[in-house]
Design a protein around this nucleic acid. Structure first.
Length: 267
DNA sequence: GTGCCATGTGAAA
DNA sequence: TTCACCTGGCACC
């Protein structure tokens, strides 16, 4: 489930598992074979996440950039090492662990300049304590673009995906099509603080949990534990109105028309 | 068992 | 705007 919290967890796990160790690297699938050969046998120094991007430093000034995309996975295992199953883009093997990367959108070596460019085009990441929400606010407050689109724009805020977007807008009673410039500063700052807490919870728990404790009893067994995400056509958990969906820039929005009233020209 | 859709992005057209 | 990535969960048969 690769939203920002997953990448933070992955980076932490890779760092805890491999940092300081020499690793054998290979590309059983072949698509990363040349670069894997360059890394092979070098020491993995550090793994870190920025938004939904993973950056891994290796000895010899080599830098690995990975983006999992929609269905990529990078899973760490303990020995014994087993033969690759399916399409393994990159395999890491150390003395006491191994990991397989599958189905990523991006797996490539980065130059230092590419890393600088990446960080420069990412907005503040709510999972980083030094993140400055006012950088995001400056983009939002002057934009006619719907706030639902702005939140998913990684250059505005890094690390939000479709689940956090849908849920955070519900929690703050904001209609996803409200223009950025019609969001009040206080509303946005409250949303940011809430988002940072939810994403930090997501890192701890390993799941996106957005339903407030006092509403958990409204979630039936086996039901998706969300207010609106992927609940189109079902009743809002708080007011009973039917949850709506609509596509915006290629992704599905979900919202409750009563709890998140339409914008009618005033903030 | 089969087929569709999905937590996302970047390249190709 | 469409496709590639080519996994995994789930609804449906």
């Amino acid at each position: 489930m690769p939203e920002g919290h997953s990448l933070r967890r992955l980076a932490d796990e890779l760092d805890a598992t491999f940092a300081g160790s020499a690793v054998r690297t290979s590309s059983p699938q072949g698509r990363f074979a040349g670069s894997a050969a360059l890394l092979d046998g070098t020491r993995l120094l550090r793994a870190d996440a920025a938004g939904k991007h993973l950056l891994v430093d290796f000895e010899g000034d080599r830098l690995l950039h990975v983006h999992l995309g929609l269905y990529g996975t990078f899973l760490v295992h303990r020995p014994p090492v087993t033969p690759p199953v399916g399409q393994v883009r990159l395999r890491l093997v150390s003395e006491d662990a191994w990991a397989d990367l599958r189905g990523p959108t991006a797996c490539e070596l980065y130059t230092p300049e590419q890393k600088v460019e990446l960080l420069a085009r990412l907005g503040p990441d709510p999972l980083r304590p030094d993140a400055d929400p006012l950088r995001a606010w400056e983009r939002i407050r002057r934009s006619r673009t719907p706030v639902g689109a702005l939140l998913m724009d990684q250059s505005v805020i890094a690390g939000i995906g479709n689940v956090y977007r849908a849920e955070i807008l519900f929690r703050h009673g904001l209609h996803p099509l409200r223009p950025g410039l019609a969001v009040r500063r206080g509303q946005f700052l409250a949303l940011w603080v809430d988002l940072a807490e939810l994403m930090a919870d997501g890192v701890r728990v390993g799941r996106i949990e957005t339903v407030r404790p006092e509403h958990l009893h409204l979630v039936g067994p086996g039901e998706r534990p969300a207010y609106v995400y992927r609940r189109a056509g079902e009743p809002c958990r708080l007011c009973g109105r039917t949850v709506l969906t609509e596509e915006l820039v290629g992704r599905n929005l979900y919202w409750c028309p009563r709890c998140q009233p339409a914008y009618r020209g005033r903030a």
